[in-house]
């Protein structure tokens, strides 16, 4: 997908670090030598409310400011958001979604008719970071399955943003997730 603009949409709930995930993904692309753009679609700013954030990456500078309507990829930070079928609205054919849920990936792939990867990111974050913030684990899973940017670029982005114990634990979480997810480990909708 080198040379084309890639668009991403991140769904989460207030307090789960969805905007931070968008910024981290964009910064990861930047550290991998790409141009990038990340911004939130803020609604009611309260914990638990659905939050959407958008990312674009490209070789060329990004001038477009519109919200992402036809993403190549979705990152879903909260499995309960799958109750809304419109979550995959505009997802491009051949696109994929990485979801924080304990549900099997093939089940989600079949339900939404698209490639899916599921990981229990909240549980992993609680175990390694000590807090239920799923964003770093999901990003590590996303980079591993898509191979879009090196995990090392995510580590640089994390170092820019965090320090001390928080940084160390997030880096450990990234390493743990990246070690378990093979490139192209998507569950295809046809698997169901």
């Amino acid at each position: 997908m080198v040379g084309v603009m890639i668009e991403y949409r991140i769904h989460g709930r207030g307090g789960q670090g969805s905007v931070a995930a968008a910024y981290l993904l964009a910064a990861t692309a930047f550290h991998a030598g790409q141009m990038c753009q990340a911004f939130p679609a803020f609604g009611a700013e309260r914990r638990g409310a659905p939050v959407t954030a958008f990312v674009r990456t490209d070789e060329a500078p990004i001038r477009l400011r519109a919200q992402v309507r036809t993403p190549h990829f979705l990152i879903v930070q909260d499995g309960t958001l799958l109750q809304d079928p419109s979550i995959v609205a505009g997802l491009r054919p051949g696109g994929g979604m990485v979801v924080n849920t304990t549900r099997p990936g093939d089940e989600v792939a079949a339900e939404f008719g698209c490639r899916a990867l599921t990981i229990p990111a909240t549980e992993l974050a609680e175990e390694v970071i000590g807090r239920p913030i799923p964003n770093t684990a999901l990003l590590a899973a996303f980079l591993s399955v898509t191979g879009l940017f090196e995990i090392a670029s995510l580590s640089v982005a994390l170092r820019d943003r965090f320090s001390g114990t928080t940084l160390e634990r997030n880096l450990a979480l990234v390493e743990k997730v990246a070690a378990t997810i093979r490139p192209d480990a998507w569950k295809e909708p046809a698997d169901a």
Binding site: V19, A22, Y23, A26, A27, F30, M35, C36, Q37, A38, F39, P40, F42, P61, I62, R65
Partner: peptide
């Protein structure tokens, strides 16, 4: 500068 559209956008 446009609120959110620029203020909350991360870019190079």
């Amino acid at each position: 500068m446009d609120g959110f559209v620029l203020t909350h956008t991360l870019e190079p």
